[in-house]
Simulated scan of single mutants.
Amino acid sequence: MRFRPAPPGGRAEPPNADDAAAWVTGAVPDGWFTERPEIVVDRDEIIIWARVPEPDLGPDATDADRAAAQAGRINQFREDTRDDRIRVARQIEHHYQRKVAWGIRCGDTNELFTHLAAPVMTRLRQPERQILDTLVDAGVARSRSEALAWCVKLVGQHTEEWLADLRQAMTKVDELRRQGPNTI
Rank of each mutant, 00 (worst) to 15 (best):
I48V: 15
D42W: 06
D42G: 05
T62S: 15
R51F: 03
R36C: 05
E45G: 04
D56A: 12
I39S: 00
A64Q: 14
E54F: 02
E54L: 01
I46T: 01
D44Y: 14
R43V: 14
A68H: 10
E45I: 08
F33N: 04
D56C: 05
D63P: 03
I48E: 01
I47P: 00
R51H: 11
R43E: 15
G58I: 11
T62V: 07
G58D: 02
V52D: 00
D63M: 11
D56M: 10
R51D: 15
A50D: 01
I39F: 09
E35G: 10
E45L: 08
R43P: 03
A50E: 10
T62A: 07
T62C: 06
E35R: 14
A61F: 02
W49N: 10
I48H: 02
V40H: 12
D65T: 06
E38R: 10
D65S: 01
I47G: 02
V40R: 14
A67N: 08
I48R: 01
I39W: 02
E35D: 15
R36W: 07
A68P: 03
P53K: 08
A68S: 13
V52I: 15
E54P: 01
D60P: 02
A68Q: 12
F33I: 01
D42A: 06
T34M: 02
A67E: 14
D44F: 13
V41H: 01
V41S: 04
D42E: 06
I47D: 03
I46C: 01
R66I: 10
E35I: 02
I48Q: 00
P59M: 10
D42K: 05
V40G: 09
E45F: 06
R66F: 04
L57N: 04
R43A: 15
T34F: 04
I48A: 01
T34K: 05
E54W: 05
V41Q: 02
A50V: 14
T62R: 09
T34I: 02
V52E: 00
I46D: 00
E38Q: 12
P53G: 06
D63I: 07
D56F: 11
D63G: 05
G58V: 08
P37F: 12
P55S: 06
D65I: 04
R36I: 09
F33V: 04
A50L: 07
R36K: 14
I39D: 00
P55W: 02
D42L: 05
D56Y: 09
R36H: 07
A68V: 04
L57P: 03
G58R: 02
I47R: 13
E54R: 13
E35H: 09
P53E: 10
E54V: 13
V41G: 00
L57R: 08
I46L: 11
T62M: 11
D42N: 15
E54G: 02
